[in-house]
Computed example of a mutant assay.
Amino acid sequence: MFKHILIPTDGSPLSERAVDQGLRLAAEVQARATLLTVTDPYHLTDSWPLVGADEYAEYARRQGEGRLASGAALARTLGVLCDRLVVEHETPYAAIIDAATSQGCDLIAMASHGRRGISAVILGSTTQQALTHTRIPVLVLR
């Protein structure tokens, strides 16, 4: 069935539940997994005017690694071979697709972050955009 599952997370409770489900699926089908989190790039105009790009990059990397820590621990417990990626990218869905492609993943297992109202119409969700732009199967978890 599936041999390598990409499991992106943003650290939210729904996303963490999807990490748990995705890793349990990987254990069940004896697949390896790659946990991914996407950090925002440094922008001088953002709320970081007193912090340089290098300091911000280190902070973002640490935050990203923190988001992946519990998933990596669960993977070890389940006996799932698991890599971790922290990627800086402007567009999370594109980073997810790029990582799935470059890592040779044959499934993306991710949380459904449903939006409501006008924001759903205007922005869409990262999950919806990934579904729209990839040929790799996407398992949407709730």
Results as ranks from 00 to 15, higher is better:
Val80Ser: 11
Ile96Pro: 09
Leu74Ser: 08
Val19Met: 06
Thr126Leu: 01
Met1Asn: 07
Leu44Arg: 11
Arg84Leu: 06
Ser12Phe: 00
Gln103Arg: 15
Arg61Asp: 11
Ala95Ser: 08
Ser119Tyr: 00
Gly114Pro: 04
Thr134His: 07
Pro49Ser: 10
Leu131His: 03
Ile122Glu: 01
Thr101Gln: 13
Thr34Arg: 12
Ala75Trp: 04
Cys82Gln: 11
Leu23Ala: 10
Ser102Asp: 15
Gln128Tyr: 02
Ile108Arg: 02
Ala27His: 09
Ser15Met: 03
Tyr56Trp: 12
Phe2Tyr: 15
Arg142Gly: 05
Leu85Lys: 15
Leu141Thr: 03
Gly11Asp: 02
Glu55Pro: 03
Asp46Ala: 15
Thr77Arg: 15
Pro8Cys: 03
Arg67Ala: 05
Val87Asp: 06
Glu28Ile: 00
Met1Glu: 10
Leu25Cys: 05
Ser125Thr: 12
Glu58Thr: 14
Arg116Ser: 15
Ala33Ser: 15
Leu123Cys: 00
Val138Ser: 05
Tyr59His: 14
Ala75Thr: 07
Ser102Val: 10
His133Asn: 10
Pro137Leu: 02
Leu50Arg: 12
Ala57Leu: 04
Ala94Asp: 11
Asp106Asn: 05
Ala31Asn: 10
Ser15His: 01
Ala27Cys: 08
Val80Trp: 08
Asp20Ser: 04
Ala73Pro: 01
Leu23Pro: 06
Leu44Cys: 02
Gly52Glu: 12
Arg76Leu: 05
Leu81Ala: 14
Glu90Arg: 12
Leu107Gln: 08
Val87Lys: 13
Trp48Ser: 13
Ser47Thr: 07
Gln21Lys: 11
Val51Gln: 14
Ser112Arg: 11
Val140Ala: 04
Gln129Thr: 01
Leu23Cys: 11
Val121Ser: 03
Ser112Phe: 02
Gly71Pro: 06
His4Gln: 09
Ala94Leu: 14
Ser125Pro: 04
Glu65Cys: 03
Arg32Tyr: 05
Tyr42His: 10
Arg62Pro: 00
Gln103Phe: 03
Ser112Met: 05
Gly11Pro: 02
Ala95Cys: 08
Leu6Ile: 07
Asp10Tyr: 02
Gln63Met: 08
Gly66Trp: 10
Thr132Cys: 00
Pro137Ala: 02
Ala120Met: 02
Arg76Asp: 14
Leu107Ala: 09
Ser102Gln: 15
Asp54Thr: 14
